[in-house]
Design a binder for these strands. Sequence first.
DNA 1: TTTATAATTAACGTTTACGTAAACTATATG
DNA 2: CATATAGTTTACGTAAACGTTAATTATAAA
Lengths: 143, 143
Amino acid sequence: MSDEKNVHTFTISQIADELDISTRTIRFYEEKGLIKPGRTAGNQRIYTPRNKARLKLILRGKRFGFSLDEISEMIGMADTDMDELAQIEKSLYFGEAKLKEIQDRKKELSLLEQDILATRKKLLQRFRELKHTATTNNKKENM
Amino acid sequence: MSDEKNVHTFTISQIADELDISTRTIRFYEEKGLIKPGRTAGNQRIYTPRNKARLKLILRGKRFGFSLDEISEMIGMADTDMDELAQIEKSLYFGEAKLKEIQDRKKELSLLEQDILATRKKLLQRFRELKHTATTNNKKENM
DNA sequence: TTTATAATTAACGTTTACGTAAACTATATG
DNA sequence: CATATAGTTTACGTAAACGTTAATTATAAA
């Protein structure tokens, strides 16, 4: 009994189902160098939990409007040569920048929230005006 | 002296400069029904501060990955017939949904932040390892 | 009033992020 | 082992969100 890859792995469709994306999407991310799953003897992709976590991270970035290019800068290209100092320094540098962006987005998120609340307030105001008019008219009609 | 439109207005390129977008983008948003500026006698677009504010709102939504279609649902189509109860109710309904989304995004934003911080930690770890190795090697070489 | 800028419409082009179909191979199952 | 099911590559298709001419008209400046 060798302990070779004892971690349970997943097929592409298992991942797709779980993350609610298409297999095409997963392969597309691989094409772009964002993930790098292993292969079976028969050349089929196998995903480790680590691969899955990375995909989740990518999807999280997407939900914030980051482009795939930005995301790859953010989390680093597929673990190809993550071992050179220069590469690491670059990633660190980018990470800092992205952290700042996230701070900004947090602020903007609040602004957006305020905008929506303000809009809602106006709408409710208008809504009541209209209802009042309608009520008034109804009363007239009922007299 | 009539008080006709005493508010200072802007040309399309003034708006473009100020909001740092292209005139094409502004016209495109108009095509999609998101804004509805006035026109001069010579058929050129004129933007009121209100129009400008609306554009800012659109851009804010964009920064959060909302599509233009979603944004138009969010802030209501160009003030054409914003006066029917049904329309207002729909907008209110959407507003609530979007507020919830914003709550979710706030949470995810923190998660993304944590991910980046975790990545940074690992990178720094690896960084130090490499530097140590380099130092060790140098010491050997210098002996 | 001429002329340099700026704006308008129309239409085709481009990038991103996948969708979809075809032709083929691997794997699972009765 | 036959065959249904799942996975692979290749390649063309597509929607969204503008970019980029081009041809024409307005407006501002000298």
